[in-house]
Amino acid sequence: MHIPFSSSATSSLGIEWEIQLVDRDTRQLRGAATVILDEYQNKIGKDVEPRAKHELFESTIEVITGVCDTVAGAKADLSSTLGLLRDLAEPRGLALMCSGTHPFTGYDTQQLSPDPRYHSLLDRMQWIARRMLIFGVHVHVGVRSQDKAIPVVNALATYIPHFLALSSSSPYWLGMDTGLASSRSKVFEGLPTAGLPYLLSDWAQFEQFMAALVSSGTVESIRDVWWDIRPHPNFGTVELRICDGLPTLLEVGAIAALTQCLVDRMNTQIDRGYTLPTPQRWAVQENKWRAARYGLDAEIMVDEQGTTHCVRNEIADLVDELLPVARRLECADELTDVLHILDVGSSCERQRAVARRADGDLAAVVDTLLQEMESRRPTL
C-alpha cells in the first residue's frame, strides 16, 4: 500500500483546539454545535473554508488554524475564530470553555453530532465511543519528507510525559475526583487504535501496517488511528495528540511552541546525519502513566536503568535547551510561557485548588475555567 506524503518545506504549524459549549446557568455542557456552525458558515461566507467544525458530540466545536509559520500567527488565527463563535454562543446563553473533561457533565446526557462518520464510530465501538466526552489539543508540525516522519514520531514519544504533565486538565470525571491529573488520557486509551504509537522502523513498515489495518476493515484511513503522536501524510506533518484540552490561549501557544521547536530540532539533526533515538516502549508507557497520575509532580524514568527525575525539572531544562531554536522560529516568548505554567501549575492543579476553596463545589471550577478562557491566561 503506497501512502504519498505531502512534504512541508518548513516547520509549519497547525493547531486543533476542542472547545466545550457550556450553559451559563447550569454550567453543564449543552448541545448547539450544528446551529452555531451553520450560522458561522453563513457569517464567513459559503465559499470560505471554515476554521471550526463538528466533533463527536453536539456540545463540542473543534477550532482549527490554517497553515501558519509562527506560533503567534496560529494564536491570532485561533483567537479570531473564537471571537466569532463567542458572538454566536452568547445569545443562546452559552459560553466557551476547555479542559480535558467537563468536571461533572455525564456523557449519557449528550447528543451525537450529525456527521455520519461519528455515527459509524458509535455503531462499531458502542459504549467505548459513547464515553468519549473528552477534549484535547492537537499540534501539527511540518516535516520535509516521509523518511523523516517515522523517526520524528519515535523520538517525540520520549516527550509524551512532558506534554501530558504540562497539559493535564482532567482530574474530574462525572463529578468525581479521579485522583488522576489526566483522566482523559485513560478514557481515550479505550479506543482500540488510540494510545501510544507503535515505534516502527521506517515509512515502508508504516505503509505495511496501514495496509493490514485497511484490508482487515479495522480502519478506513490514518484518520482512524488515534495515536498520541502520528504522521499525517495528507498534511505532511507529525501530529502531537497527547495533550489534554487547554483552558487558555497562553497554554495552547506554549504547547505549540514546545512542539514546533522539538520537531524543528529533530528535522535539523536528521539533515546533519544524526540518528534520532527511539525510546523503549515500556519506558514510554510507564512515564505516560506517571504523568497521567501525578501531572507535573511525576518522577519519570530518564534512562533504561530506572533513574528518575521530576518531570517539572526536565521540562524546565528542555525549555532552556530549545531557546536558540525558538528564537530562530520567532516563538521564544511562547516557549518561555511553558515556565509560566510550571510556576502557576497545570490546569488540574488549579482546578483542585478552586474546588478546595469552594468546599468541593465543582460549579466554581467551571466558573474559573470560563474566566480563564475569557482572560486567555491561567488564573492563580
Rank of each mutant, 00 (worst) to 15 (best):
R377S: 09
R357P: 01
A358E: 07
V137D: 03
D108A: 15
W289A: 00
A129E: 08
E18Y: 10
L258D: 03
D361I: 00
Y107F: 15
A89C: 13
A52E: 01
M125C: 14
L322R: 00
Y172M: 11
L380C: 07
D23H: 10
N267G: 13
L342W: 06
F235I: 04
P151N: 05
T268D: 15
P378W: 03
R117F: 10
G190K: 05
T379N: 13
D333C: 11
W17L: 08
A326E: 00
R312L: 12
A363C: 12
V35Q: 14
E58H: 07
A256H: 03
V366E: 01
C243R: 00
D25S: 14
D147I: 03
D337W: 09
Y172D: 03
K288C: 01
M373P: 00
D147H: 11
L329C: 09
E374Y: 07
L29Y: 02
D297I: 00
D303V: 08
S12N: 12
I150V: 14
T10W: 07
L196K: 07
K43V: 07
E49I: 14
P231V: 02
L94Y: 04
T278V: 14
I255D: 00
R184E: 15
D333K: 13
P233H: 01
E330G: 03
T248A: 09
V365W: 03
T308Q: 13
L200R: 09
D202F: 01
R352T: 05
L296K: 09
S185L: 13
R30D: 04
L249Y: 03
L78G: 00
H309M: 12
L318F: 10
T248C: 11
T109I: 05
L191Q: 04
A52Q: 02
D123N: 13
R376A: 10
L370R: 01
G295S: 05
D23V: 06
A204N: 11
